[in-house]
C-alpha cells in the first residue's frame, strides 16, 4: 500500500507542516529524505530493542553499569527501555506521529550521548549496552566510546531532522490527516 500516489504533483493536502506552494527540487527531495531518516532511525530502534528484550536482567545491568541513576530508577529504565524502543521504532517506520516520535527519539538519544560521554570521561570500562551486551565488554575488548558517540550523534541528527521535517512519503500520518471534512 502506498499512501502517496505516484505522479502526485507537489505536497498533497495531507502533507503537514512545511507548506511550500512552489514545486522546487527541495520540496521534491525533502519528503524522501524524511522517509529515509524515519526508516534508518526506526530500524535502529527496533534492532536495539529486539536485541535487549529477551534478557531484561542484562538490560538492567547495562543501565546500572553507567553508575549514573539511582537503583530504583535503574530497575525501571532497564526493563522499560527495550519495549519502548521497539514501539518507537515501529511508529517511526510506519510514519505514525512522526514529529512526536522524533522528539522522544531526540530526548533519548541526547540522554544516551550524555551517558556514554560521561562514562568515557570517568574512565569506566563498559560497553554502551546499546544492543544487548548487558554493559559488559567483549572478553579482552577495549571500550569504543568514540564510535558509540559518533553513531548516537548521527542518529540524534536524524531525529532532529525529523522534528523539523516530519512529513515524508510512505507515512501513515498522511493518511490519518487526510480525513479533512471537505
Amino acid at each position: 500500500m502506498t499512501p502517496g500516489t505516484p505522479g502526485n504533483h507537489g505536497p498533497g493536502p495531507g502533507d503537514s507542516s512545511t507548506m511550500t506552494t512552489v514545486e522546487s527540487p527541495r520540496a521534491r527531495v525533502l519528503p524522501w529524505l524524511s522517509t529515509l531518516a524515519r526508516l534508518v532511525l526506526g530500524g535502529v530502534w527496533i534492532a536495539a530493542g529486539v536485541a535487549k528484550i529477551t534478557d531484561l536482567d542484562a538490560s538492567v545491568r547495562a543501565v546500572r553499569a553507567y553508575a549514573l541513576l539511582p537503583e530504583a530508577v535503574v530497575q525501571i529504565v532497564g526493563p522499560g527501555l527495550p519495549p519502548a524502543e521497539i514501539l518507537l521504532g515501529a511508529l517511526l517506520v510506519l510514519g505514525v506521529g512522526v514529529r512526536v516520535g522524533a522528539v522522544i527519539s531526540t530526548v533519548l538519544m541526547a540522554a544516551f550521548v550524555v551517558g556514554i560521554a560521561s562514562a568515557w570521561i570517568r574512565g569506566l570500562s563498559i560497553d554502551c549496552g546499546c544492543f544487548g551486551s548487558g554493559g559488559a565488554l567483549a572478553p579482552g575488548a577495549e571500550p569504543t566510546y568514540g564510535r558509540e558517540l559518533a553513531r548516537d550523534g548521527g542518529l540524534l541528527v536524524l531525529a532532529l531532522f525529523l522534528v523539523r521535517w516530519p512529513a515524508g512519503r510512505w507515512a501513515l500520518d498522511a493518511v490519518l490527516t487526510r480525513k479533512d471534512p471537505t
Partner: peptide, 21 residues
C-alpha cells in the same frame, strides 16, 4: 496525537517493567 504517542510509549515501558518485576 502527542498524548496518544507518549502514553503508548510509556505503556510499552511499563509492560517491560512489569515483566521484569
Amino acid at each position: 496525537m502527542i498524548i496518544g504517542i507518549v502514553v503508548v510509549v510509556l505503556f510499552a515501558a511499563a509492560v517491560g517493567f512489569g515483566v521484569y518485576r
